[in-house]
């Protein structure tokens, strides 16, 4: 119920701006989705419904390889970053407040604030130095880079869940003869699980669609789906890309919906 003293419903302009923003946000997406089902090639010319482009994309080995690589990286990176994030969240909520706590928060959330291109360049230089010294050329660089910048995305929902948790429950478990470790895995962890899954999904999605850092860090032959798409688009706009984008969009929407449902407070 809106308070009569200040209700945006009574102010002119709010709805107009809202409509404009929604159009700017969603019209391009709708067009992309729409034309991915076009049987013709040209955008803006509807030649009939078809799933041809999905078929083309599916049959393309380069797309398959990039997709598998992207999912592999996203899965590994999201697992690693979630484990680190759980530890960080426990470390920043399950102890007495300490000096420099705000500084630690900033350190953990640094990837959200530092321009991505800066991180990318820094990683490029750092990994180049390691490459020279070790000769290792593998996918590990991308995994490490992704794990690092995904940490804050996993950390934030986990910490929010931990802070929202009734600490008396842990006290009660200790009172009922649970050792500190038992308190964690019998009470804290099960109650934290929705937050952990939410954080992991957020990390997964973030890793899945990263372009900038991946582009700087990857070696030859290590195309992920986004870098592959970027490469294709540079040559010519292929309708195949619409189909891939639509699938990615659907996946992201599904994951974000699940994220929303998991972080929503039920009790």
């Amino acid at each position: 119920m809106a308070d009569r003293a200040f209700s945006t419903a009574r102010l002119p302009g709010f709805s107009a701006i809202a409509i404009f923003v929604f159009v700017a946000l969603y019209l391009p997406l709708l067009m992309l989705v729409f034309y991915s089902f076009n049987s013709g090639k040209a955008i803006g010319v509807w030649e009939g419904f078809s799933l041809d482009w999905y078929g083309t994309a599916w049959a393309n080995d380069a797309v398959k390889a990039a997709t598998l690589r992207s999912f592999g990286i996203a899965l590994t990176a999201s697992i690693i970053s979630t484990i680190v994030a759980v530890m960080a969240a426990l470390g920043t909520t399950r102890r007495r407040a300490f000096r420099g706590q705000t500084f630690i928060y900033m350190m953990i959330n640094q990837p959200l604030m530092v321009p991505e291109i800066v991180t990318a360049v820094a990683l490029l230089i750092f990994f180049a130095w390691i490459k020279v010294n070790t000769g290792y050329q593998g996918i590990g660089y991308i995994v490490v880079a992704h794990s690092a910048f995904c940490i804050p995305f996993a950390y934030l929902p986990i910490r929010a869940r931990l802070e929202g948790m009734d600490r008396t429950l842990e006290t009660a478990a200790a009172d009922l003869y649970a050792t500190p470790w038992q308190v964690f895995y019998r009470v804290t962890f099960p109650l934290l699980l929705p937050g952990i899954i939410a954080g992991m999904m957020l990390a997964f999605v973030t890793s899945l669609d990263d372009v900038v850092i991946t582009l700087f860090v990857k070696s030859a032959g290590q195309e992920t789906l986004p870098t592959y798409m970027l490469g294709q688009i540079r040559r010519s706009v292929s309708t195949e890309i619409y189909a891939i984008s639509t699938v990615l969009l659907a996946l992201t929407v599904a994951m974000l919906t699940a994220f929303f449902l998991l972080t929503r407070k039920k009790d």
Binding site: D166, T168, L169, T171, A172, A173, A174, D175, L176, Y177, A178, T179, V187, L191, D267
Partner: peptide
């Protein structure tokens, strides 16, 4: 607390949800 043969009924009950 886990080593004391003493149990508590909490004001908020603190039942495990």
């Amino acid at each position: 607390p886990n080593k004391r043969p003493v149990n508590t009924v909490f004001q908020s009950y603190a039942l495990f949800p």
